[in-house]
Design a protein around this nucleic acid. Structure first.
Lengths: 221, 221
DNA sequence: ATGCTAGTATACCAACCGGTATGGATAATT
DNA sequence: AATTATCCATACCGGTTGGTATACTAGCAT
């Protein structure tokens, strides 16, 4: 029972048609699907095993118990979603004018919110946040804060915008997006009170532009 | 098995020390606590019965099954939270200047977000939104949309603000608040990247004020 | 008194839960 | 050829699940 923590390519079981997918990965992929669909409590290990086309004992040879498997899949999905931007790209972002910057930021978010897996991740992380606060923290740190720091970093750098609290302003931007995702898509609000994401972006830009114009004017006098 | 849908005061069982609380209410109160603490799947009916100090069969004499009980408690809490404003109060709100209006809106939200029960409700409704979409819809309709329509109604009425899309602007305001509640309180972001709610309000007001000033100026020329 | 209702207490049900044990098959390593 | 490790198949474990059945009691209205 040696610690075989090779996250690399030493897949020990390449048997069948030459799949490079290790058994452990097979399990993780299946677990991602089942856990994100049903949440922690109403997911049974039998169901995961069946979905992974694997025997239950095999799961327990890779993961100590249900909780560890759940934590593993949340980490997996979280990090997968956050194969973050290169420093060069962030540099580029910082050099853009505000309107272009917001446009790019929203594009990134739009891509995220179109992924069913990402929506499910958000739902499950919130739903299980009471019993798995560490996972909620992980999610916040690696996903939410990344976008937040990007935006607040930009706002802080561009002093011509004269924002007294860059973090709070970044929160308003990102928060508007997250809230839209939750109440329109996850909670199904779009079915009886639709609100286009683009309209939110436009309205947001309206506000930011106004702020920008005001500051230009006040710095002129 | 007649339909006894009296939501009034005909409590049939006033036995003990003279509690006016019916047995059904006893069950609902206990179920609220347990379900909101643990979510749907990891709440057992035995636990609810014990918490309500009632036998399990008694629960099933009032509710057909677990799902019905869960739906009942979500409705109960949802409506309890939304003993909405009087029309007169809404009228008052509409007559306020924008900054005062935002201030009052945030005060209402601050009160909501301080209630642990409300936070738990939000968490559970999101977490179970896949298996209970009707409950998510109920929540959106009776809670979220109420605040949204209040704000968007105000924005639409005050044409001097020249907001092209009142609903989207209302979403930015309310969404900023909800998102703050989720990532600071529910997901625990405050523990390592604290952001005061008041700072969000101030930053938001900064943006709205700028928009307002811009419109005044443009209408002057 | 006689039902009727609402509740209690307890026991029970089949199904499923997370997790383990055993024993055999396969394949790579030595 | 022997060893080792991984996996499968099946069966099993004690405990819990949602939900029911039976038998009994207390209050209430006719």
């Amino acid at each position: 029972m040696q610690d075989k923590r090779d996250s690399g390519s030493s897949a020990p079981a390449v048997i069948g048609g030459g799949r490079p997918r290790s058994k452990k990965d097979q399990i993780v992929q299946a677990a991602i699907k089942v856990f994100l669909e049903n949440g922690y409590a109403s997911t049974s290990m039998n169901r995961v095993a069946a979905e992974a086309d694997v025997i239950k004992a095999t799961i327990y040879s890779h993961f100590k118990d249900k909780e560890e498997l759940f934590a593993a899949i949340i980490e997996e999905v979280t990090f997968k979603r956050m194969q973050a931007d290169t420093p060069e790209f962030e540099q580029l972002l910082h050099s853009l004018p505000p309107d272009e910057f917001v446009k790019l930021l929203t594009q990134k978010f739009r891509m995220l919110s179109q992924s069913a897996e990402y929506r499910a991740l958000l739902r499950v992380v919130i739903g299980e946040s009471e019993r798995f606060p560490e996972l909620a923290t992980l999610y916040v740190k690696t996903v939410i804060l990344k976008g937040m720091e990007l935006a607040s970093g930009y706002f802080a750098k561009h002093k011509e915008m004269k924002l007294n609290n860059p973090l709070a302003t970044a929160h308003i931007c990102c928060g508007s997006f997250v809230a839209w995702l939750i109440w329109q898509e996850i909670l199904g609000g779009k079915n009886f009170k639709p609100l286009e994401f683009d309209d939110v972006v436009i309205a947001l830009q309206e506000l930011v532009d106004a702020k920008l114009a005001q500051d230009k004017e006040s710095s002129a006098e």
